[in-house]
Computed example of a mutant assay.
Amino acid sequence: MAKETFCEADKRRFEKFKNFGLPHTFKKFGVALVALSILFLFARKLFDIDVAITLKFILKRVVLVGLLIIAISKEKVEDEMIRTIRGQAFSMAFIAGVVYTLIQPLINYIVALFVEKDKEPLTDVGDFQVLWFLLTMYLLFFYMIKKRL
Protein backbone atom coordinates (compact mmCIF):
# COMPACT_ATOMS: atom_id res chain seq x y z
CA MET A 1 0.00 0.00 0.00
CA ALA A 2 1.44 3.34 -1.07
CA LYS A 3 2.09 5.99 1.51
CA GLU A 4 -0.17 9.00 1.44
CA THR A 5 1.53 12.11 0.07
CA PHE A 6 1.70 15.27 2.12
CA CYS A 7 -0.79 17.03 -0.17
CA GLU A 8 -3.28 14.15 0.01
CA ALA A 9 -3.02 14.02 3.80
CA ASP A 10 -3.44 17.78 4.02
CA LYS A 11 -6.48 17.65 1.73
CA ARG A 12 -8.01 14.83 3.82
CA ARG A 13 -7.49 16.80 7.05
CA PHE A 14 -8.99 19.92 5.47
CA GLU A 15 -12.07 17.99 4.30
CA LYS A 16 -12.49 16.51 7.77
CA PHE A 17 -12.25 19.99 9.32
CA LYS A 18 -14.59 21.51 6.69
CA ASN A 19 -17.27 18.89 7.32
CA PHE A 20 -16.97 19.10 11.11
CA GLY A 21 -20.19 19.38 13.02
CA LEU A 22 -21.58 18.28 16.33
CA PRO A 23 -24.45 15.78 16.37
CA HIS A 24 -27.97 17.24 16.17
CA THR A 25 -28.66 16.43 19.84
CA PHE A 26 -26.08 19.04 20.90
CA LYS A 27 -28.40 21.77 19.60
CA LYS A 28 -30.72 21.26 22.60
CA PHE A 29 -27.73 21.44 24.95
CA GLY A 30 -26.64 24.74 23.34
CA VAL A 31 -30.14 26.20 23.63
CA ALA A 32 -30.27 25.19 27.30
CA LEU A 33 -26.88 26.83 27.97
CA VAL A 34 -27.93 30.07 26.30
CA ALA A 35 -31.36 30.14 27.94
CA LEU A 36 -30.09 29.45 31.45
CA SER A 37 -27.24 31.95 31.21
CA ILE A 38 -29.42 34.73 29.81
CA LEU A 39 -32.14 33.96 32.34
CA PHE A 40 -29.64 34.21 35.20
CA LEU A 41 -28.19 37.46 33.80
CA PHE A 42 -31.69 38.98 33.54
CA ALA A 43 -32.70 37.72 36.99
CA ARG A 44 -29.54 39.24 38.43
CA LYS A 45 -30.43 42.61 36.93
CA LEU A 46 -34.17 42.38 37.69
CA PHE A 47 -33.81 41.41 41.35
CA ASP A 48 -30.71 43.56 41.86
CA ILE A 49 -28.60 40.58 42.93
CA ASP A 50 -24.98 41.54 43.51
CA VAL A 51 -22.82 39.05 41.63
CA ALA A 52 -19.08 39.04 41.25
CA ILE A 53 -17.74 40.44 38.00
CA THR A 54 -16.07 37.09 37.40
CA LEU A 55 -19.42 35.27 37.40
CA LYS A 56 -20.89 37.81 34.98
CA PHE A 57 -17.85 37.34 32.72
CA ILE A 58 -18.23 33.55 32.86
CA LEU A 59 -21.98 33.68 32.14
CA LYS A 60 -21.38 35.86 29.08
CA ARG A 61 -18.82 33.35 27.81
CA VAL A 62 -21.26 30.49 28.45
CA VAL A 63 -23.79 32.32 26.24
CA LEU A 64 -21.16 32.50 23.48
CA VAL A 65 -20.28 28.81 23.87
CA GLY A 66 -23.97 27.90 23.74
CA LEU A 67 -24.50 29.94 20.58
CA LEU A 68 -21.41 28.33 19.03
CA ILE A 69 -22.69 24.85 19.88
CA ILE A 70 -26.02 25.68 18.24
CA ALA A 71 -24.25 27.09 15.18
CA ILE A 72 -22.00 24.07 14.58
CA SER A 73 -24.56 21.39 15.42
CA LYS A 74 -25.77 19.47 12.41
CA GLU A 75 -29.36 19.44 11.26
CA LYS A 76 -31.39 16.24 11.31
CA VAL A 77 -30.85 15.97 7.58
CA GLU A 78 -27.45 17.40 6.68
CA ASP A 79 -27.23 17.60 2.89
CA GLU A 80 -25.64 19.84 0.26
CA MET A 81 -28.46 22.38 0.48
CA ILE A 82 -27.91 22.82 4.23
CA ARG A 83 -24.18 23.29 3.63
CA THR A 84 -24.93 25.94 1.02
CA ILE A 85 -27.32 27.68 3.41
CA ARG A 86 -24.66 27.57 6.13
CA GLY A 87 -22.15 29.23 3.80
CA GLN A 88 -24.61 31.94 2.82
CA ALA A 89 -25.58 32.58 6.44
CA PHE A 90 -21.94 32.77 7.58
CA SER A 91 -21.03 35.23 4.83
CA MET A 92 -24.10 37.40 5.50
CA ALA A 93 -23.39 37.36 9.26
CA PHE A 94 -19.76 38.30 8.64
CA ILE A 95 -20.74 41.28 6.49
CA ALA A 96 -23.38 42.36 9.03
CA GLY A 97 -20.80 42.01 11.82
CA VAL A 98 -18.26 44.19 10.06
CA VAL A 99 -20.86 46.87 9.31
CA TYR A 100 -22.08 46.71 12.93
CA THR A 101 -18.54 47.01 14.29
CA LEU A 102 -17.83 50.03 12.11
CA ILE A 103 -21.13 51.89 12.62
CA GLN A 104 -22.02 51.17 16.27
CA PRO A 105 -19.33 53.40 17.84
CA LEU A 106 -20.52 56.29 15.66
CA ILE A 107 -24.14 55.74 16.70
CA ASN A 108 -23.10 55.63 20.38
CA TYR A 109 -21.16 58.87 19.91
CA ILE A 110 -24.09 60.67 18.26
CA VAL A 111 -26.55 59.50 20.93
CA ALA A 112 -24.14 60.61 23.68
CA LEU A 113 -23.93 64.06 22.09
CA PHE A 114 -27.70 64.51 22.14
CA VAL A 115 -28.44 62.86 25.47
CA GLU A 116 -25.49 63.82 27.64
CA LYS A 117 -24.62 67.13 25.95
CA ASP A 118 -20.89 66.59 26.30
CA LYS A 119 -18.43 65.16 23.87
CA GLU A 120 -17.47 61.63 24.68
CA PRO A 121 -14.66 60.01 22.78
CA LEU A 122 -15.55 57.22 20.42
CA THR A 123 -15.59 53.90 22.21
CA ASP A 124 -14.79 50.60 20.61
CA VAL A 125 -17.20 47.67 20.42
CA GLY A 126 -16.24 44.91 22.86
CA ASP A 127 -15.29 41.35 21.96
CA PHE A 128 -18.39 39.85 23.60
CA GLN A 129 -20.65 42.24 21.71
CA VAL A 130 -19.08 41.44 18.33
CA LEU A 131 -19.06 37.67 18.85
CA TRP A 132 -22.61 37.66 20.21
CA PHE A 133 -23.77 39.72 17.23
CA LEU A 134 -21.99 37.46 14.70
CA LEU A 135 -23.36 34.23 16.15
CA THR A 136 -26.86 35.64 16.58
CA MET A 137 -26.91 37.00 13.02
CA TYR A 138 -25.63 33.67 11.69
CA LEU A 139 -28.42 31.76 13.42
CA LEU A 140 -31.01 34.33 12.33
CA PHE A 141 -29.89 34.24 8.68
CA PHE A 142 -29.54 30.43 8.69
CA TYR A 143 -33.07 29.79 9.93
CA MET A 144 -34.58 32.54 7.76
CA ILE A 145 -32.98 31.12 4.60
CA LYS A 146 -33.82 27.56 5.61
CA LYS A 147 -37.47 28.45 6.26
CA ARG A 148 -37.73 30.30 2.94
CA LEU A 149 -36.59 27.26 0.94
Rank of each mutant, 00 (worst) to 15 (best):
A2Y: 00
A2W: 07
K3M: 13
E4L: 14
T5F: 04
T5W: 01
F6Q: 01
F6P: 01
E8R: 10
A9I: 09
A9E: 10
D10Q: 14
K11P: 06
R13W: 03
K16T: 10
K16L: 13
F17E: 07
F17K: 11
K18S: 13
G21C: 10
L22I: 07
P23T: 08
P23E: 06
H24Y: 13
T25K: 07
T25V: 14
K28I: 15
F29K: 05
A32E: 06
L36T: 15
L36P: 08
L36D: 04
L36F: 15
S37E: 09
S37C: 12
L39R: 04
F40Q: 05
R44S: 15
K45M: 12
K45D: 11
L46V: 14
F47D: 06
D48R: 09
I49P: 05
D50Y: 12
A52P: 10
I53S: 13
I53Q: 11
T54N: 10
T54A: 13
T54P: 01
T54R: 03
L55Q: 09
K56V: 15
L59E: 00
K60Y: 05
R61K: 13
L64W: 00
L64A: 02
V65Y: 03
L68V: 12
I70S: 00
I72W: 01
I72M: 06
E75V: 09
V77K: 12
D79S: 04
M81K: 11
I82N: 04
G87P: 04
F90S: 02
F90Q: 04
F90T: 10
M92Q: 01
M92L: 15
A93N: 02
I95N: 00
I95L: 13
A96G: 05
V98L: 10
V99Q: 01
V99A: 12
T101Y: 00
I103V: 14
P105G: 01
P105F: 06
I107Q: 01
I107G: 02
I107K: 02
I107R: 00
N108K: 10
N108E: 09
N108G: 07
Y109V: 04
Y109E: 05
Y109K: 11
I110Q: 02
I110E: 06
F114W: 07
V115A: 09
K117S: 11
D118I: 15
D118F: 15
K119V: 15
E120Y: 15
P121I: 12
P121A: 14
V125G: 03
D127T: 15
V130Q: 00
V130E: 00
V130L: 09
L131T: 10
W132S: 05
W132R: 04
L134T: 03
L134C: 10
L135P: 02
M137K: 01
M137I: 06
L139C: 07
L139S: 05
L140H: 02
Y143T: 12
Y143A: 04
M144Q: 08
R148W: 08
L149D: 00
